[in-house]
């Protein structure tokens, strides 16, 4: 048998949608390999959501009684399940914890790991992972020589699919390693900055480090206001971490995923972790002074120039156009 174990992240009563994608993908792949997809949930409240994973194709769901939100306990719990079962692959939907747990497991099990994976195929009874590399300029294929292969997906890579079904839920006890006991969460999920709503916007004006300082966001606010209607301002992690703009407006891997009619990026380089949150936008316009910025690779309209010169004039022109 070639079963696949999936790590499912959950928080405040909901399973993360990337984890749902990973469970769906594992169910599909396990079917092709002639095995089953199993999932594991860790921490308080896991039991409440465990059964729901059956609908996405999980045949068995493990509920581990260990602290949530940190990699250490999850590595211990998953290593225990993997050692006691018949598994060939482990799948993660991505995210910060997915990377940390996947890599820790690879070290503990002597397994190979592939990360930022956008597609998985079955070739000769084995899984092959596809990973875009070097700024998405090419795609490499990763195969595993180890007994277990670990695959960490890129954000939003795996489609969520309800195939229907029931999962058997099994409680597992976890013996925490010494290192797992040495990291503890003091606070989790702190929302920094105002609670802005960007998810329903048709037009998003997004600002990055190229704005130069927190006040640079005034240029974005004014442009968004000129568009009027259903428009809002969004941001990159770089500027949210710097305290220039609220976390609730962050787009990307550890922020929101959006697909507005227009995404206008000002002073944003276009890092993969930002791209994954906005690449499905209908129209992407980028203003960047560096002609080689990666964002131009996936923009529909790219303007090579200084945003300080362009944004104010663009705001005026749009106001004038709207009359």
């Amino acid at each position: 048998m070639a079963n696949i174990l999936v790590y499912a992240l959950h928080y405040e009563g909901a399973v993360n949608k990337n984890s749902l994608g990973a469970v769906s993908e594992a169910a599909k792949l396990a079917g092709e390999l002639g095995g089953e997809a199993h999932a594991i949930l860790i921490g308080d409240g896991a039991a409440d959501v465990a059964g729901s994973l059956g609908a996405y194709g999980a045949k068995k769901v493990f509920v581990a009684d260990a602290p949530a939100g940190l990699a250490g306990p999850a590595i211990d719990a998953m290593a225990g399940v993997l050692n006691g079962g018949d598994y060939k692959y482990v799948l993660f939907g991505g995210g910060l914890l997915g990377f940390e747990i996947g890599a820790g497991l690879a070290a503990r099990l002597g397994a190979g790991v592939a990360m930022e994976v956008t597609a998985v195929t079955v070739q000769g009874g084995e899984l092959v992972a596809e990973r875009p590399i070097l700024g998405d300029s090419s795609i490499s294929e990763i195969k595993f020589r180890s007994d277990i292969g670990i695959i960490i997906g890129r954000l939003n890579a795996f489609e969520i699919k309800q195939s229907g079904g029931d999962a058997a839920v099994e409680n597992v006890s976890v013996e925490l390693s010494a290192q797992a006991g040495k990291a503890t969460l003091r606070t989790r999920g702190e929302q920094r900055g105002a609670d802005v709503d960007i998810e329903g916007a048709d037009v998003l004006v997004a600002g990055g480090r190229g704005l130069g300082k927190a006040e640079g966001f005034d240029l974005c606010d004014q442009l968004a206001a000129a568009f009027g209607g259903n428009s809002a301002v969004a941001a990159t992690r770089a500027v949210v971490d710097a305290g220039w703009y609220p976390y609730a407006a962050q787009i990307g891997q550890t922020g929101k995923t959006v697909a507005p009619k227009l995404y206008l990026a000002a002073g944003i380089s276009g890092a993969i972790q930002h791209k994954v949150g906005m690449q499905s936008s209908e129209n992407i316009v980028a203003i960047n002074k560096d002609a080689n910025a990666p964002i131009f690779e996936f923009s529909d309209l790219g303007i090579v120039g200084d945003l300080n010169k362009i944004l104010p004039k663009l705001t005026e022109a749009i106001k004038a156009k709207k009359g």
């Binding site: 592939a114 990763i142 131009f296 529909d300 120039g305």
Partner: peptide, 30 residues
């Protein structure tokens, strides 16, 4: 090494976007 990454292939080509070099900002904005 347990992970073996093999020869890369080219990703699907996305139609290249339009690029404007900002020389005259009034014209660019237009």
């Amino acid at each position: 090494s347990a992970a073996q990454w093999t020869a890369a292939k080219a990703p699907p080509q996305k139609a290249a976007g339009t690029i404007i070099e900002d020389e005259d900002t009034a014209e660019t904005v237009e």
